[in-house]
């Protein structure tokens, strides 16, 4: 596929010798949103965590098969270096409670011990907050703790923090599942806006959300990739019976 950012080949993952991902092969095109969807326990969160190797935090996690980021083997890279190239946004907003908004945005630099001139970091903070659609709301409170923000604002702050590292791909692990409908709509608009310049991989258990904002969709069921293709096509003419049953709400 032209302009592929992330590619997996025969990828499997195991926890305690339980296989939770079975021979997944797919790829995410550049500057588009790819959604991973499926009922809970289907392995979508495991898959997204395997991309930046966060699954390794769980003891006895194993993988087999290949995964490439821009044609580089993810599993032969240093996890630390890999994670700096891949941004991640979690289910629950998790800004650093001891840092102000400014430092939260450049936390990836600060915590990694990267020093830079003030102008430079100012520029990164402003640009990242603007990309995350938060600049106008917080530009006067940059030096206040981020914890007074609403849940939706906090989540956008976390997106800004990930964007500040200029990641090759942004992983969104059910980014709206802890938010109210209004904040959810706001984040969804933001994702659509961001995809002009940013490749994203979105995990969602919300079928409608996948339909609204993704360009490609992968449907996972019991650790298997059942179907992968352009969202529109999958939602209108699903190839697999299980995909159809899921989309029509027969299970899940």
């Amino acid at each position: 596929m032209e302009g592929t950012i992330l590619r997996t080949e025969d990828f499997s993952a195991y926890y305690n010798n339980n296989q939770v991902l079975k021979n997944i092969t797919f790829s995410t095109p550049k500057n588009l949103v790819t959604a991973l969807m499926g009922p809970s326990g289907c392995g979508k969160t495991t898959l997204i965590r395997c991309v930046n190797r966060m699954h390794e935090l769980i003891p006895d996690a194993k993988v087999s098969g290949k995964m490439y980021l821009m044609d580089k083997d993810i599993y032969s890279m240093e996890p630390i270096v890999l994670r700096r190239k891949i941004g991640m946004v979690f289910q629950k907003p998790n800004p650093f409670p001891t840092m102000n908004i400014y430092n939260n945005v450049i936390a990836g630099y600060k915590l990694n011990g990267i020093k830079m001139p003030r102008d430079n970091s100012d520029a990164i903070v402003e640009q990242s907050l603007k990309s995350a659609g938060l600049w106008n709301e917080v530009k006067d409170f940059l030096y206040r703790k981020g914890t007074f923000l609403s849940g939706g604002q906090q989540q956008r702050l976390c997106i800004a923090r990930a964007l500040a590292m200029k990641p090759e791909i942004l992983l969104l692990d059910e980014p709206t599942s802890a938010l109210d409908p209004k904040s959810t709509a706001h984040i969804e608009e933001l994702i659509v806006e961001l995809k002009k310049t940013q490749t994203m991989l979105l995990v969602t258990h919300n079928i409608a959300q996948a339909a609204r904002i993704s360009d490609y969709t992968a449907f996972l069921y019991l650790g298997e990739l059942i179907e992968f293709g352009p969202t529109e096509k999958m939602f209108t003419v699903p190839k697999d019976r299980r995909t159809e049953e899921y989309l029509t709400g027969k299970f899940g």
Partner: peptide, 23 residues
């Protein structure tokens, strides 16, 4: 020391600094 190493590189390349870090 490592912070100092990357400082110079940062000036030209503020973004995408992952490669420059002494892993």
């Amino acid at each position: 020391h490592s912070a100092h190493d990357t400082k110079v590189l940062c000036l030209n390349r503020p973004f995408g600094v992952a490669d420059t870090l002494p892993e």
